[in-house]
Simulated assay, not measured.
Amino acid sequence: MSSRRRFYARPLIATAASLVVLTGIASAAPAATPATPPAATLDDTYYQNALGKTGTALKSSLHTIISDQTKLSYSQVWDALKATDQDPANSSNVILLYTGRSQSKSGNGGDVGDWNREHVWAKSHGDFGTATGPGTDIHHLRPEDVQVNSIRGNKDFDNGGSAVSGAPGNYTDGDSFEPRDAVKGDVARMILYMAVRYEGDDAFADLEPNDRVSNGSAPNIGRLSVLKQWSQEDPPDSFEKNRNQVIFDRFQHNRNPFIDHPEWVEAIW
């Protein structure tokens, strides 16, 4: 497997100026952007019991905190993604994760050219499918082009490979997928969220990152060392922070702690 080191600019995406109101079918009418609470406020309330901890103690505390959530059905995910991933410049569209393309919210489905629901933690890694729980957790579900989603499949994440057709800046080979630079950190933080949220105590597998690829159906995804690097090189931007807030305010009412505290990646792993 080849590897490359590339330097890149932060994406020029402004904080979302509007969000849709979901009433079963997404509306294009703009609504006020939810305000992200200051870190100090979150630390005084939501993360209070995690402060000052590291390693397994921090991971355990965060697991307890973020496990308090509202669960969605798989069909509800469609409308949720139309709000969480809304294009800040066009309230009728969503931004696709790997391609970065802005596409009509109504263009979702299973046909060529549609967008569908990408499980960033591949659902076969732990065999949870689309079951309510990890299979419907929108902290790791993102809109993506049907064909690009298929190319990624259930591959682990790593650097290297050949260019992905229709998705500039993405690369893949036989056992791994490398997303475009602008969302590398997003991918890493989604994977690590899943590893903290699902610890094997709720009828689902204990999901854990490791430093391998070709994990198959094991409840693991790699490559951890690369994911940690991606999280450092691509810190949370306004789009990712807003997405975290929308999930908290309107849907699951839990947060991805690695968006609020990126330093906790190193504190745990």
Rank of each mutant, 00 (worst) to 15 (best):
44 D>F: 03
73 S>R: 12
52 G>F: 03
51 L>C: 09
167 A>Y: 07
187 V>A: 08
90 N>W: 06
26 A>D: 08
44 D>E: 10
103 Q>V: 15
156 D>P: 13
208 E>Y: 10
150 S>G: 14
63 H>G: 08
86 Q>H: 05
96 L>G: 05
130 T>W: 04
123 K>H: 10
41 T>N: 02
183 V>W: 09
16 A>I: 00
106 S>E: 13
213 V>P: 03
214 S>R: 14
152 R>I: 09
60 S>Q: 13
39 A>G: 09
151 I>L: 15
35 A>I: 07
194 M>D: 09
107 G>Y: 15
113 G>K: 05
6 R>V: 14
107 G>C: 01
254 N>F: 01
257 P>A: 01
111 D>R: 14
161 G>H: 10
238 S>V: 14
140 H>A: 14
231 S>P: 02
126 G>W: 02
20 V>Y: 04
40 A>S: 13
264 W>R: 04
36 T>R: 10
265 V>M: 05
137 D>H: 08
177 F>G: 03
230 W>V: 03
248 F>I: 00
158 D>R: 11
40 A>C: 01
212 R>I: 01
120 V>H: 09
155 K>E: 02
207 L>Q: 11
94 V>P: 01
177 F>Y: 14
112 V>G: 04
120 V>G: 11
79 D>G: 07
269 W>C: 00
58 L>I: 12
105 K>H: 11
78 W>N: 12
18 S>V: 04
58 L>K: 09
89 A>T: 14
25 I>S: 08
140 H>M: 09
96 L>A: 09
151 I>M: 04
179 P>K: 08
240 E>W: 09
52 G>E: 05
136 T>Y: 08
157 F>Q: 13
52 G>I: 08
245 Q>V: 00
95 I>W: 06
183 V>Q: 12
183 V>G: 13
11 P>Q: 12
195 A>E: 11
165 S>T: 15
181 D>I: 01
67 S>F: 02
160 G>F: 07
245 Q>W: 00
269 W>K: 03
92 S>V: 01
173 D>I: 07
180 R>M: 04
180 R>P: 04
10 R>C: 02
49 N>F: 06
12 L>P: 01
225 S>V: 04
232 Q>W: 06
248 F>M: 00
26 A>E: 02
14 A>T: 11
153 G>I: 05
118 E>M: 10
1 M>D: 04
235 P>C: 11
257 P>N: 02
39 A>T: 05
172 T>F: 11
88 P>E: 08
141 L>C: 13
75 S>K: 15
151 I>F: 10
22 L>I: 13
142 R>H: 01
51 L>H: 12
19 L>M: 02
12 L>I: 10
116 N>Q: 13
229 Q>S: 10
27 S>R: 15
168 P>W: 13
252 Q>G: 00
85 D>G: 02
137 D>Q: 05
87 D>N: 13
191 I>W: 06
61 S>D: 07
103 Q>Y: 04
43 D>N: 15
237 D>K: 05
132 T>N: 15
77 V>T: 14
50 A>M: 13
137 D>Y: 06
106 S>T: 12
57 A>L: 08
56 T>P: 00
51 L>D: 08
250 R>T: 00
45 T>G: 07
197 R>A: 15
194 M>P: 02
57 A>G: 01
28 A>T: 14
144 E>N: 11
46 Y>L: 08
168 P>E: 05
136 T>Q: 05
27 S>D: 15
256 N>T: 05
244 N>S: 05
129 G>K: 09
28 A>E: 03
165 S>M: 06
3 S>V: 11
15 T>Q: 11
131 A>H: 07
